[in-house]
């Protein structure tokens, strides 16, 4: 019975799953580089279907935590469980299965510069799925349109795209396999406020239609206020505060206070309250 829960939780539940199920669980995570500890005994839960905003001062280790969850960094201690699978002790097959259910949008897009946008989106499909070419083209085109790009962008190379288009194309690639969870590393950095708001809206729309869980590292207060269900603040090598945006506003933690109730935040705050 154990396995039923682990292997195929999605199939037996309502289409978008149980909202209280914890799909990513980090326990006691300690990461350091060259004797310097970046994260120490950090705990974090991500629940199905939520958009979790992750904030923290520059250099606090937000990207390190993201990379650790993805398995790109070695950790000294602790466990990370994704969909109930402990990725350190999982077999290669289980790891592949977990990888197929995750999509990542890197900060600078990380699109393959030698491939067109369409081919970029097809890379995960080619790797993991055995689909007819025609259907693969259609699905890739669908993903490109879903993220709000025009059809003629599909045959362009990443070097021919603007910053906002690169982010969207990278999101399309992250969504190629219809993952259950996507990780966004500063998705709105470098976008104009209108483009950033569009992107936030897009993320919210995709969450609603595809039942995505979103883990978003961001500095964008607008994003935090408009789309995030929950916010976690990283500081002093662990998750300092975790909760809804209202709880953040009520927090007395000095950094949280100055972040959410500082000069730049006050205006937004008033808008949302009024």
């Amino acid at each position: 019975m154990d396995q039923t829960v682990q292997e195929a939780p999605a199939e037996q539940q309502a289409p978008h799953g149980d909202p209280n199920e914890i799909i990513i669980e980090a326990r006691d995570v300690t990461v350091g580089f060259g004797g310097k500890t970046v994260l120490e005994h950090l705990n974090l839960d991500i629940r199905r279907g939520e958009i979790l905003g992750f904030v923290g001062p520059s250099g606090a280790g937000k990207s390190v935590l993201l990379r650790t969850i993805l398995g790109l960094n070695q950790k000294q201690e602790g466990t990370v469980k994704i969909f109930g699978t402990d990725i350190d002790n999982a077999s290669d097959e289980d790891k592949t299965r977990v990888d197929m259910r995750m999509g990542v949008l890197f900060q600078h897009g990380a699109l393959f510069s030698a491939l067109t946008v369409l081919e970029n989106v097809q890379v995960p499909m080619r790797e993991y799925l055995d689909l007819p070419k025609e259907l693969m083209d259609e699905l890739a085109m669908l993903k490109i349109e879903l993220v709000g790009l025009k059809r003629d962008a599909a045959n362009k190379f990443p070097s021919e795209l603007s910053g906002g288009m690169i982010k969207r194309a990278a999101l399309a690639r992250a969504l190629a396999l219809d993952p259950d969870v996507v990780f966004l590393d500063e998705p709105t950095s470098g976008l104009d406020p209108i483009g950033a708001a569009d992107f936030d809206e897009l993320v919210a729309k995709l969450r609603d239609t595809m039942g995505l869980t979103v883990y978003m590292v961001t500095h964008d207060l607008d994003s935090l206020f408009s789309v995030c269900d929950r916010v976690a603040v990283l500081g002093q090598k662990k998750v300092m505060v975790e909760g809804t945006i209202e709880e953040m506003l009520a927090s007395e933690e000095p950094w949280v206070k100055s972040y959410f109730r500082g000069k730049r935040a006050r205006q937004l705050d008033m808008e949302t309250r009024s």
Partner: peptide
Amino acid sequence: GSEAASTLLDAVGESAHNKDEQP
């Protein structure tokens, strides 16, 4: 169709009915 399915169909429909020439 369930509610989630019809949301999905709506979201995808726009693209399916798009008659723009494929490049």
